[in-house]
């Protein structure tokens, strides 16, 4: 089912809200992985507000689709979306990172409703997603697994072990993204540990690859529709994004991989986000 203009308009409104939520939570938390949280907004928003078969009032629904946020450091974005989706009260996020809070910067599946898998250590999400997808197959279940990787974490060899196995086991009930924001903590991915030719690497491992603008709901929707209908091989959606997207002083800035925000910066960040959506 293709996406409509009205749906895109509504998703843009959600994304606008979530971007400002990320800024608020980063302020409450005393610091967060704000850059990578802002780059993955559209991917997670379209999943939670269009595609996932989920029931927020029944988080353990057996036949729900599963989401594995392998780039678990984007927990502030994930938490904001889960709250806006209705899994828990948004106000609880004021405690983010605080003593004994259920919400740490990498979300814990045993503490946060709606989180299917605890992530945070990089290179773990794709193997777990392959396991979830195989689990659905063994049990003849129709639910899908959605996995979201960061690009920097693709340095980890475990991803390529999983890539090999997804192809070998013909895992096609899984939709996988890489948030290709091209920056990691120490600098640009191509300077720290080059990933290119990135698409060719996945293709060489037997995957089908789509490269898209990861901030375009239209393009993300088309890629998801393609991945869901493709039954011959696993599909990788390389979503080209901008780290810090929406906040002018953070965009493409390595130093905003992680940071804290005082009242002044929170205000400036929100103004920048508002300008993005006005334009």
């Amino acid at each position: 089912m293709p996406i409509t203009d009205q749906e895109i308009k509504e998703l843009e409104e959600k994304a606008h809200q979530v971007r400002k939520d990320i800024i608020d939570i980063t302020g409450w938390a005393g610091g967060a992985h704000v850059g990578g949280a802002l780059s993955v907004v559209e991917i997670l928003v379209i999943l939670y507000f269009k595609y996932l078969n989920i029931e927020p009032n029944n988080p353990e629904l057996e036949n729900r689709d599963r989401v594995v946020l392998s780039k678990g450091h984007a927990g502030v974005c994930h938490a904001a979306i889960l709250a806006r989706k209705g899994y828990f009260d948004f106000e609880l996020l004021r405690e983010f990172n605080h003593f004994k809070s259920s919400f740490g910067m990498h979300l814990d599946s045993l503490k946060v409703k709606g989180v299917d898998v605890s992530t945070g250590s990089l290179g773990h999400g794709l193997p777990i997603s392959v396991g979830l997808a195989l689990g659905a197959r063994v049990q003849k279940k129709s639910w899908l697994t959605y996995c979201v990787l960061g690009d920097g974490e693709c340095n980890e060899g475990s991803n390529w072990e999983a890539a090999m196995s997804a192809h070998h086991f013909k895992v096609t009930n899984m939709v996988t993204f890489v948030d290709r924001n091209k920056l990691m903590i120490d600098g640009p991915t191509e300077e720290i540990m080059g990933l290119e030719p990135f698409a060719d690497k996945w293709k060489a491992f037997g995957w089908l690859v789509r490269e898209i603008n990861g901030h375009s709901f239209q393009e993300i929707a088309e890629a998801i529709e393609y991945a869901r209908s493709e039954n011959s091989a696993p599909v990788m959606i390389i979503a080209n994004t901008v780290k810090g997207k929406g906040v002018d002083f953070m965009e493409n800035e390595v130093k905003w991989h992680y940071g804290g925000l005082d009242t002044d910066l929170i205000e400036k960040a929100k103004q920048s986000i508002d300008r993005m959506y006005k334009g």
């Binding site: 599963r66 794709l126 777990i128 396991g131 979830l132 195989l134 689990g135």
Partner: peptide, 9 residues
Amino acid sequence: GIAAGLAKS
């Protein structure tokens, strides 16, 4: 990792 996913399912 796959075992964890299978258990989660």
